[in-house]
């Protein structure tokens, strides 16, 4: 509706009439989709962070396994292996573990105090690598062989691959969900934009016949749906942040923790939650623009 401002100048009203509550269901659906998308994004980020941490731990260490050999003192061999390992360049620290440590590692499978004393057990020497050094696998194995120790060096490669594969799977799953949710949001908004256009055919026809370009008409719907997407996205992201915080504050089973977003208030996670509503708004705007432009092209 036109009103006159203080200087008596006519101030034009919006060309699209108010939605009159028609967009409320769309707001709810968009907010839910953005909420789920945020959880997926946080989940993908959590999986990436976890895999980075685990592979970093595995890559910065080696393990020397001392095989039990009849007639040899395994504890002494472990101590000797730890001492020799320290002489190899690129190795920062070594810790030789005794039979008690080996028994503790087996306890979850064989139980406590169930092992006969004469059961030969391999002993473990943990080797910590100096920062940014490639693992001196061959040099270490050669040093062990040269000292005549029954030792084999393990670079954890098997485990690193397994962790990376798991992390990649979790990330792929989360990103696939994110893509699906984005596509669903775009489809819902496109549908809603078409419905809105049909409900406003009187407006679009009048505009069209008055010489409005398609992009001018599309811009009207685009702006409306951008704001709707932005508001719905903000609501969804806020709820996702709250849920993520609550989940992180509570205890979760170890095997679940990997898949749950990890709320640490770091810049990237906050950035994700801020970007999500903007992306939702842009997705809504683009969907509306494409839907309206296609519809105008079909009808005129």
């Amino acid at each position: 509706m036109t009103i006159a401002d203080q200087s008596g100048q006519q101030v034009s009203g919006p060309l699209l009439p108010p939605d009159g509550g028609r967009d409320r269901p769309l707001f709810l659906v968009a907010a839910i989709l953005v909420f789920l998308a945020c959880l997926s994004a946080l989940g993908a980020r959590g999986a990436w962070q976890a895999s980075q941490q685990w592979t970093s731990d595995l890559e910065s260490s080696l393990t020397i396994q001392i095989r039990p050999v009849e007639g040899r003192d395994a504890d002494a061999d472990a101590q000797e292996a730890a001492r020799i390992a320290l002489t190899v360049p690129g190795i920062d620290k070594t810790v030789a573990h005794d039979r008690t440590h080996a028994e503790a590692l087996l306890a979850p499978w064989l139980g406590q105090d169930n092992l006969p004393d004469d059961l030969p057990l391999p002993l473990i020497v943990d080797v910590e690598l100096a920062r940014n050094e490639a693992p001196p696998l061959d040099a270490l194995q050669s040093a062990m062989d040269a000292a005549g120790l029954p030792a084999s060096v393990d670079d954890h490669g098997r485990w690193i691959d397994a962790v990376r594969t798991s992390a990649r799977s979790a990330q792929t799953l989360a990103l696939s969900l994110l893509a699906l949710l984005t596509a669903a949001a775009a489809a819902v908004v496109a549908f809603a934009a078409r419905a809105s256009l049909v409900a406003r055919l009187d407006v679009t026809d009048a505009l069209h016949l008055c010489g409005a370009e398609d992009k001018f008409i599309a811009q009207l719907f685009q702006t409306r749906f951008f704001l709707l997407g932005l508001k719905a996205g903000a609501a969804g992201a806020l709820v996702a942040a709250l849920v993520s915080m609550l989940v992180s504050m509570g205890e979760s089973p170890a095997d679940m923790a990997f898949f749950l977003p990890n709320w640490r208030l770091d810049t990237i996670e906050i950035g994700l939650l801020i970007i999500a509503p903007i992306l939702a708004g842009l997705t809504a705007a683009l969907s509306a623009r494409l839907a309206v432009t296609a519809d105008l092209r079909d009808r005129w």
Binding site: M1, T2, Q10, S12, G13, P18, L209, C210
Partner: peptide, 25 residues
């Protein structure tokens, strides 16, 4: 007629000018 009831008489008449990018002033 194809008039838009959510717009004033002024805005309805000014529609062709508005869609061509002119300012109300």
């Amino acid at each position: 007629f194809k008039l838009l009831n959510h717009l004033s008489v002024f805005d309805n008449v000014a529609l062709p000018l508005r869609v061509s990018g002119r300012q109300s002033s």
